[in-house]
Amino acid sequence: MSTFTAPGGRRTRTRAGWNALGLLVLLVAGFPVYWMLTTAFKPAKDAIDPDPSLLPTSLTLANFSRALEISDFWGPVGRSLTVSLSVVAIGVVVGLLAALALARFAFRGRKIVIVGILAVQMVPLVAMVIPVFLLLSDLGQYDKLSGLILTYLTFILPFTVWTLRGFIVNIPKELEEAAMVDGCSRTGAFVRVVFPLLAPGMVATSVYGFIQAWNEYLYALLLLSQKNQTATVWLGNFTTQHGTEYAPMMAGATMMALPIVVLFLLVQRKMAAGLTAGAVKG
Rank of each mutant, 00 (worst) to 15 (best):
I171Y: 01
M249S: 09
G282F: 01
L59P: 05
A189Y: 00
L148M: 11
G140S: 10
Y208D: 03
L118G: 10
L157Q: 05
S71G: 14
V113K: 11
A6T: 14
V261W: 07
T57Y: 12
F264I: 15
G201I: 00
L139K: 07
F64D: 06
L26Y: 12
F105G: 08
Y34Q: 06
S146R: 14
A99Q: 05
Y217C: 06
Y219L: 15
K281S: 05
M250V: 09
V194Y: 00
T244R: 04
W74K: 12
K227A: 13
D49W: 13
M180I: 15
L164F: 00
M202K: 04
M256Q: 06
W74H: 12
I260D: 02
E176K: 08
K227F: 07
K42E: 04
L258R: 05
L263Y: 07
G166E: 00
K173T: 10
A20P: 11
G282Q: 03
L157S: 02
Y34R: 08
L81N: 06
L223G: 06
Y152N: 07
L224E: 01
F64G: 04
G147D: 08
I149G: 00
V261H: 11
D49E: 13
R165P: 00
A119R: 12
P50N: 09
A204G: 03
F155Q: 09
V280R: 06
V113Q: 10
A16Y: 14
A62L: 15
T5M: 13
V87D: 02
I114F: 12
I114E: 14
R11L: 15
T151Q: 10
M180D: 03
S53Q: 15
P200A: 02
A47W: 00
A277M: 08
L85R: 11
A204T: 01
G147E: 04
K111E: 13
H242G: 09
Y246M: 12
A220T: 03
F41V: 15
L266Y: 03
D72H: 14
V28R: 07
I149W: 01
V207S: 01
K45I: 14
S225H: 11
K227I: 04
G166W: 00
T5D: 08
L221P: 02
L150F: 07
F238W: 02
A40F: 02
L100N: 13
L85C: 11
L61Y: 08
L26P: 08
A189S: 07
K227D: 13
K42T: 09
T276D: 00
F4E: 11
A199G: 04
V120K: 11
Q241Y: 10
T12F: 15
L23N: 12
R10Q: 12
P7M: 02
T160R: 04
R66P: 04
L153K: 03
A127C: 10
G140V: 13
S86R: 13
T39G: 03
D72W: 13
G75D: 09
V93Y: 09
A103E: 07
S71Y: 13
T57H: 14
V194K: 00
V267A: 05
T160C: 04
A16K: 14
D46A: 15
E245L: 15
W35P: 05
S2Y: 14
A40K: 01
V193T: 03
A119E: 05
K173L: 11
T151E: 03
L145Q: 03
D182V: 07
P124G: 06
A213Q: 02
L148W: 01
A199Q: 07
V123T: 06
P52G: 09
P124Y: 08
T60F: 11
A6W: 12
G9S: 15
F167Y: 04
S71E: 11
G201Y: 00
